[in-house]
Amino acid sequence: MRIPILKLHHYLLVSIQTEIDDHTAIQFQEDLLSKIHKSGSSGVVIDLTSVEMIDSFIAKVLGDVVTMSDLMGAKVVLTGIQPAVAITLIDLGIHMKNVPTALNLEQGLTKLHQELGE
């Protein structure tokens, strides 16, 4: 199973809709980086509205993906993190300090727009 990555102008949109196992997460990391490389996108929105839980492994993969994309010149915004997920992450002691966030897909795109100054 693979997570679909959509291209919208010079942004990439990802909506994670299913329960993610470790393998899918790693696969997604690879897919996204190669897609950024191929398309030359400058911004990525990863929407997590339908994700019911994030454990330390998935949090690490997501955090890594943000840093890696940054290195490749693409800004990543995580959107739609659910309250239950946010509380669980804080309980786990994971604060994802370097990861930009937004309430929803729309505001995520606005945020990218502002930060990239386009």
């Binding site: 019911e52 839980m53 454990d55 239950a84 509380i87 669980t88 309980d91 786990l92």
Partner: peptide
């Protein structure tokens, strides 16, 4: 919220 906490704890233990 507690469901998410429990599921996450199980995920950590299983991993």
């Amino acid at each position: 919220v507690d469901q998410a906490r429990i599921a996450t704890a199980i995920s950590e233990l299983a991993r």
